[in-house]
Nucleic acid binder design. Sequence first.
DNA 1: CTGGAAAGCGCC
DNA 2: AAAGGGCGCTTTCCAG
Length: 544
Amino acid sequence: MTEWLAKRPAGAPMAVAIDNTNQFIGLAYRTGEGRAVPMTLLEALRPMLEAEDVEKVVHDSKGFLLAMAPLNIKAAAVTGDAMLFAFLISADPGGCSPEALAERFLDRKLNAAAEQQAEATLAVAELLRPQVEKQELWSVYRDIDLPLSPVLAQMEMSGIRVDTVVLAELSTRLNERIEGLAQQVYDLAGHPFNINSPQQLGKILFEEMALPAPFKYGKGKVVSTAADVLEGLAPAYPVAQLVLDYRQLTKLKGTYIDALPLLIRPETQRVHTTFNQTGAATGRLSSSNPNLQNIPIRTSEGREIRAAFVPEDGWELVVADYSQIELRLLAHMSQDPVLMEAFTHNEDIHTRTAAEVFKVNPLMVNSEMRRSAKAVNFGIVYGQTPFGLAQSLGIDRKEAELYIRRYFERYVGVREFIDKTIAEVRASGVAKTLLGRRRPIPDMNTRNASARLFAERTAVNTPLQGTAADLIKAAMIHIARILKEKRMRSRMLLQVHDELVFEAPVSERDELKDLIKREMENVYQLSVPLLVETGSGANWRDAK
DNA sequence: CTGGAAAGCGCC
DNA sequence: AAAGGGCGCTTTCCAG
């Protein structure tokens, strides 16, 4: 802690609301970022504050040091976290900053003054607390959102180690390939241009080089050069493949390889993300600065980037992820007998769906059939249309319609679940998770057909995605508590939606794996089992 | 020079 | 008429 205190980065000031007996009220915001420090974290920091000679200094959950300005606020009660309250009342990621809260609930415009923000936020918290208490939202607040907050804070402070040597080597290697690809593109085009500019690229490809322009694909004013378009052209036009490869490599280099080393904090030699608890309308977390929830894994180059995330010496990364949690939740919520049976017997769900859709014995399912069934399974969760399925599988729409029809013939309960869910959300205007988190879906009755269909897809997806988010959050809270109780040294580092990443001393690794698997699988009693797959660092690089 | 929109794409 | 749910980051491009 003292090291943190010694090096105060040039950060914005923060205000903390303190009552007149100098007790924390539990609201703190860093000006400009709207980052809430929940009252549970402030409680945790209290000893440090009292011990420090520095009168009014605290650091936030990311390890930034922040100046505290005591305020003359008279309220004596602990008021709660305004940001979390607001998110529970309406899961609107854009509406939870101190500024937005003041506008929404107090009809006040805030300036940048920390004192003003804290004071207004306090008022918002007092206003919202009874609203949250009244509804079933209180248990979500008390059991999930509030206790999760210090867990996230701890994860942010832990950070994760990144091997800059690996990244530097990869950077030079990719650079050569990128330049080579660019040169080949220029040669085919006849002259250099900015490949990064979709505008210029579209002109070169579809005007100068006269490639067949994608059928009515221009969304705005410019012809689309998106990946699916280029993929369609690639077999006949090598330039398309070159651009795809160029894009992939520049993306990896620009977003990860070159950016990550700059975000390593000198104090810890690690990267510290920020987990936003009100960042996704479904109740998922989001991650930023850097976003560690979108570290590449799909391609071999991507896996090389992931391999740069390494444990401390003598430690090991441990990963655990829920297998097919959203489809398991679909089974639970729909009570579809076939889907439930598949998961109860721990079958490969994509193979099972293939067997159902293609009406063959599961043993006769080949990889092509499984691939199609996998797309169908995902499509159901996302509300995909025959058109969309056809596009993603490269088949015609009749074929896609057949797959979807066959799916619902076999999974009748899923059809009923979807219809029932849409009807309920249409009536209530709100999508709910199993634990009671609610997301308003305003467009269910709009006359705009595309907006309405979008709302319907959201209505079906949100309970699945959102419940998965609730369950893993609950598991995180349990695991963090047990690690503390057992005085284990292992630390939770990352959450990637259905996956947790830990760092464990090698001697603790097996105990940790058992513990997290048990806690994650038993976090909630469903009609089908939850399955958690654990692995070590190598799995984080190579799995999936 | 800055801010924001649009395009594109990384992940689950 | 659009056509797959949820995010965050980078680059380009353009307006002020």
